[in-house]
């Protein structure tokens, strides 16, 4: 961004530091992936073994015996649905707060304050609510009973909306108003203005919010563990089946974790391009 002629030395220093930071960030995950290819006798040994005959048994164990793809399918469905709900509802609400300042900040404050209540104290009321909705035929049909995906989708939507709204309000406010006024003058209805002008401009904000909402849903443990049993269990609950009476099955749990990282990384790479493209389109030259 600063077009100052950067000397070669600072470039080397910059990339050196970046490599160092990335090494610190990536190493634990790398060690996890390495462990996922290790046969059991090479895992818990000292000194740690770097050279070993790689095996795919851990993946076979994770996928077939522990049926881990089922948990990933569940988590994908629940996380993506929640993220879509959060981003849509959040973007609409955030736009309203950013432009019309509904409630003069008090509603915004209330929304964020709902995030300040510890999940542990909330978990039992949710459990009782979803148990009762599960008893009704409508509830079961809509899938909002216990051990049904609907229960987790509502909980995750509720838990991530405050974060999404606050993040999006700041992104919406960075968008200059003139573009909207001119679009309105051209006779576009409000919803068209939103869809055609405002949202494309706020693309980076929406993409970042979408990515992190998905991450929060993907990693959540407490609600998933209490509100599901088997049919709707997510990855974080599925990992428990690797904690056995004979101890932690390090190889298979590493394999399961490595598999569960892939969809998330694919989504980030997808959103990556979208975030960058959004940038160049907007008033800001890249």
């Amino acid at each position: 961004m600063l077009q100052r002629p950067t000397s070669f030395a600072t470039e080397v220093l910059r990339y050196g530091l970046i490599v160092l930071v990335l090494a610190f960030i990536v190493f634990p995950i790398l060690w996890m992936v390495v462990t996922s290819f290790k046969p059991p006798q090479d895992v818990m040994v000292s000194p740690p073994r770097f050279l070993f005959t790689p095996t795919l048994d851990n993946y076979v164990h994770a996928i077939w015996e522990k049926n881990f793809l089922f948990y990933i399918k569940n988590t994908l469905f629940i996380s993506v649905t929640s993220t879509v709900l959060v981003v849509v509802a959040g973007a609409l609400a955030a736009y309203s707060f950013a432009r019309y300042n509904v409630g003069d900040g008090h509603i915004l404050f209330f929304i964020l304050s709902t995030k300040m209540f510890p999940a542990i104290a909330v978990i039992l009321p949710y459990f009782l609510i979803f148990r009762d909705t599960g008893k009704t035929a409508v509830g079961r049909f809509l899938g909002v009973g216990l051990d049904q995906p609907g229960a987790l989708i509502i909980s995750y939507t509720m838990f991530n909306l405050p974060f999404a709204i606050w993040l999006l309000v700041s992104f919406f406010q960075d968008i200059p108003r003139e573009l909207e006024h001119s679009a309105r003058l051209d006779g576009l209805s409000r919803m068209k203005v939103l869809r055609k002008v405002v949202f494309p401009l706020a693309a980076p904000g929406i993409a970042v919010t979408g990515v992190f909402t998905l991450i929060f849903c993907w990693n959540e443990f407490l609600f998933a563990y209490i509100l599901t049993r088997k049919t709707a269990s997510t990855i974080t609950v599925g990992v428990e089946s690797f904690f056995t009476l004979q101890g932690i099955l390090w190889g298979p749990v590493a394999a399961a974790a490595t598999i569960s990282v892939l969809p998330m990384m694919a989504f980030v790479l997808l959103m990556q391009r979208y975030m960058v493209r959004g940038l160049t389109f907007g008033a800001v030259r890249g």
């Binding site: 634990p28 993907w218 990693n219 990855i235 998330m264």
Partner: peptide, 9 residues
């Protein structure tokens, strides 16, 4: 990556 899978793992 650090956020790509849950803190539990």
């Amino acid at each position: 990556l650090p956020l790509a899978t849950s803190a539990a793992v």
